[in-house]
């Protein structure tokens, strides 16, 4: 469904992505792992069209999407959950969800989706009229996922959903991700530092290091890879 081939992205002269190739299949959960500043967020921004890939191709459903602005990428069916959630803090939870459906005009379906979000994420129903900025980090993560799903995507790209959350909430968040994937059939590209957690729900994974993919394979392969265990999984 999503296929990156040899993608290069620059920030000025800084070569942030040095030829990334990866794939996400229909309904699949794939994780993109790596430490700080290894190019995870840049990969996400390149897919979304928030930064332009200088070289290589990004295909979605066989269609070339590199070079398109975010509005066209979202319309095609890819929706982002940004790093640190990035809710609109002075908008209510409900208004944040409305913004998630910004490009849609099918009013009845939007309303039905909003109701579905209230079921999937109880916090959305409870805090409907509350300002998003007043919620806790974990609650905000739920609202951020609901907002992204309001675009009615077939692929959700999530940038560090576990960042800054308490261990207990991290587990909840990953359960919900799995749940949404199973119930809605939405494919997920999980950009994560928390490799253990991400691989526990993903089918496959890629490991990024200074802008290059250094390892890839099924979740089991990665979990049992000695190099991987040493560098990312904290196994002695």
């Amino acid at each position: 469904m999503l296929k990156l081939t040899d993608v290069h992205t620059y920030y000025g002269h800084f070569h942030a992505l040095k030829g990334i190739s990866l794939e996400v299949g229909d309904g699949e959960i794939v994780s993109l792992l790596g430490g700080n500043a290894c190019g995870k967020s840049t990969t996400m921004k390149s897919i979304l069209g928030m930064v332009k890939a200088k070289q290589g191709t990004i295909e979605y459903d066989g269609r070339q999407i590199s070079g398109l602005p975010p509005s066209d990428v979202v319309r095609a069916g890819i929706s982002p959950v940004l790093e640190r959630r990035r809710l609109f803090p002075e908008l209510t939870v409900e208004e944040n969800l409305t913004m998630g459906a910004y490009l849609r005009s099918d009013k009845a379906a939007i309303k039905a989706d909003a109701e579905k979000m209230a079921e999937l994420f109880p916090i959305v129903a409870e805090r409907r009229k509350q300002l998003a900025g007043s919620l806790s980090g974990g609650e905000q993560q739920m609202v951020a996922m609901a907002r992204a799903l309001m675009a009615s995507p077939r692929l959700l790209i999530m940038d560090e959903p576990s960042m800054g959350l308490s261990p207990k909430y991290v587990e909840t968040v990953f359960e919900v991700i799995q749940d949404v994937n199973a119930k809605e059939g939405v494919a997920m590209l999980l950009v994560e530092q928390n490799a253990n957690m991400a691989l526990s729900i993903a089918a496959r994974g890629y490991v990024l290091q200074t802008g290059e993919i250094v390892l890839s394979g099924s979740a089991d392969e990665l979990l049992n890879n000695p190099q991987m265990q040493k560098a990312y999984l904290g196994v002695a």
């Binding site: 975010p70 940004l82 208004e95 913004m99 998630g100």
Partner: peptide
């Protein structure tokens, strides 16, 4: 109004609004 909502969202975080597809 819907446009007003997009203006408020943009004023609070224009990058996030851009990622939602706002021009």
């Amino acid at each position: 109004t819907p446009i007003g909502l997009a203006i408020r969202a943009t004023s609070q975080d224009h990058e996030a609004a851009y990622a939602m597809g706002v021009n």
